[in-house]
Amino acid sequence: MPSMLEVSELTHTYPGQQAHTAIGGVSFEVTAGQLTCIVGPSGCGKSTLLRCIASLVTPTAGQVRLRGQPVRGVPEDLAVVFQDYGRSLFPWMSVRGNVEFPLRSRSVPRARRRELALSTLERVGLSGAEDKYPWQLSGGMQQRVAIARALACEPALLLMDEPFASVDAQTRFELEDLLLRVRAEQDTTILLVTHDIDESVYLGDRVLVLSKSPATVLADVAVELGQQRDQISTRESELFVRLRGEIARTLRNAPQNRGEGDHDEAGEDEEPGEVDSSGEDRADEPALAGSDSTGSERGSTE
């Protein structure tokens, strides 16, 4: 299998008075067609890592290579599903408009755009909602729109940042299976960030376990559960249970590189994403505030 993505010694420090090193030298390689899950405690730098890979943030040090070429600027055949889907859909565009949006800047002709948008929306189970506005949809449906928007681009590399974190359990299962189906159909390379260990094992061909901030790779776990997975039986299988235990243990036994470290990661079931959607005081935050659940979640565990 040819290499799709190579991340070497990636380091990122957010500048400012309280400079914060979010990623501390991360290296890994992803082969084409692989679904890699990245787990790590909240605030460890997962979103930052994806942003660096997508070139939305220029890393302080290290390199990202896509198909062997160093990445400069946002790569063409890449799509991102952001953690905060509610804030990443364009409110003045209909669902179809949102899905067509990236196709426009790729100068796909109008008729083809429409066709792609409608077929992708059908695939994510949203036929009939194409003329609605995002605010008329539930959270789970909005997330489907964000996923459809990324899929419609038929990206070679798909980055997903906690895409299912803030939907209810039932929807989450559906979306997870949708993702597995999509992957079977069009062999996209997927990098999916999650803070849910079970989800990482259920979805991944492989799980990268990150340490607390600044993130480093603690373990690289191969998940040999095969292509066919089932929400109930796979999760009951011996291998699944063993792997999730292994990952949870890795996280728990990791050296604490930040003072108070009673962060309970295993089987974390809270719903982030909901947490700070106030959005009011974002204005004075620096650009790219990836301030997902971090602050509030840590607050709740201390």
Binding site: V74, A79, P102, S105, A283, A287, L288, A289
Partner: peptide, 21 residues
């Protein structure tokens, strides 16, 4: 103009939309 959500602008950047666009 000051209220435009950074996340929206970032999404647009992720789709390679130029500054003028």
């Amino acid at each position: 103009v000051g209220q435009v959500d950074e996340q929206l602008l970032e999404s647009a950047r992720a789709f390679r939309v130029s500054r003028a666009q």
